[in-house]
């Protein structure tokens, strides 16, 4: 909590930004009072969001206005008062960090990317969609690396600005959610997203048995609905309960870190690191930084070397299985396990 005013993000464009908004978020929130969730235009939308997110401080939501305020040397704020999530005073601002030095696309394990499969199983991701998709990026020297792409939870989110019905919005913890009861399926957000992180339910998605009785929430959008847009929502339902997102929990290499800008820490479930130092010291970068979307997902460069993936490994990642197959496999394993125990 003491580190709020420090410089968490490590990329060239990022230093000081989260800190700056940490200093000014309070001011803007205090002065604007109860601003609505969305402003009129993109810029004001960000400011409006900052009013909410700014209460949490260190939101990293920066507009040029706030930059200017920061230059006017606003005094460092007192640590944000604690409050339960869901009110305007969120205590967390979630980010993800992918340590690509540890990510070898699960090819050395001869498995499909486990993060993607964990995601599929957790959310019953409809067939044909991959909310978290692992790309294989070829580098000029003939080597390649894997790049998992979730939703970037951008601070200046293009999808959020273009939605005609405000069905996609940012929650108090900085996560972009979709209200599937409101989405009209125009797909403008998909056109606007520079990362291709959004998917559409082109046909009636298959829902798990019992999903009909599930209580739909934007934080856990089950049952899935036809004609609406879907995407990764950083497992808002899990982080709320203090759990890692499914991808982080499912990664056998512990390459996925869940971070919190407020507390300036991140964890992969095995170790806890100081977020700002981790990003800075490892030269973390964000995708398409030049677009100014300010993603909340960082990458540490690498090609899985920590787990022995050679530079010239040409293997492709396997296609992640859908949740139906995963459930089938689970049942089979369970039954064979009980069988063996019975035998034993």
């Amino acid at each position: 909590m003491v580190e709020i005013g420090s410089r968490p993000p490590g990329t060239p464009a990022a230093p000081g930004r989260a800190g700056a908004s940490g200093e000014t978020g309070e001011t803007s929130a205090a002065s604007s009072g109860q601003l609505s969730r969305r402003g009129l235009f993109g810029g004001t939308g960000v400011v409006g969001a900052a009013a909410v997110a700014g209460m949490a401080a260190a939101a990293g939501v920066v507009t040029w206005l706030e930059d200017r305020e920061a230059e006017a040397a606003a005094p460092p704020p007192s640590p944000p008062p604690g409050g339960s999530a869901g009110t305007a005073q969120a205590t967390r601002q979630w980010v993800l960090v992918f340590d690509l030095r540890k990510c070898e696309g699960c090819v050395t394990q001869d498995k499909p990317p486990q993060c993607a499969e964990a995601c599929n199983a957790e959310h019953f991701v409809p067939a044909g969609q991959q909310w978290l998709r692992v790309f294989r990026v070829e580098a000029p020297g003939g080597n390649s690396y894997f790049m998992p792409r979730p939703c970037m939870q951008c601070e200046n989110a293009p999808c959020l600005n273009v939605c005609p019905v405000a069905a996609t919005y940012r929650n108090a913890e900085g996560v972009i959610l979709i209200d599937h009861n409101r989405c009209i399926g125009c797909r403008m957000c998909m056109a606007a997203c520079p990362y291709g992180a959004r998917s559409f339910n082109w046909s009636e998605p298959e829902n798990p048995p019992g999903a009909t009785f599930a209580q739909y929430r934007p934080e856990y959008p089950v049952p899935h609905r036809r004609g609406t847009v879907e995407k990764c929502m950083l497992c808002a339902h899990r982080t709320k309960d203090g759990k890692l997102p499914a991808c982080a929990a499912g990664c056998p290499m512990n390459a996925v870190y869940l971070g919190d800008l407020v507390e300036d820490s991140a964890t992969n479930g095995k170790e806890v690191v100081k977020l700002s130092r981790f990003l800075a010291e490892n030269g973390a970068f964000r995708l398409k930084e030049e677009l100014g979307t300010r993603p909340r997902v960082w990458y540490v460069r690498g090609h899985g070397q920590e787990y022995g993936r050679p530079v010239d490994d040409r293997r492709l990642a396997k296609e992640p299985r859908a949740w139906q197959e995963l459930q089938k496999e689970q049942k089979k394993e369970a039954s064979s396990a009980s069988h063996t125990t019975h035998m034993g």
């Binding site: 969305r38 402003g39 009129l40 235009f41 993109g42 004001t44 939308g45 600005n161 273009v162 939605c163 005609p164 019905v165 405000a166 069905a167 409101r182 989405c183 009209i184 399926g185 125009c186 403008m188």
Partner: peptide
């Protein structure tokens, strides 16, 4: 849900 355009219309959207 086309009526949502009128109910929740967000002025910042090109649509």
């Amino acid at each position: 849900r086309i009526v949502n355009l009128l109910r929740y219309g967000q002025v910042g959207s090109p649509i």
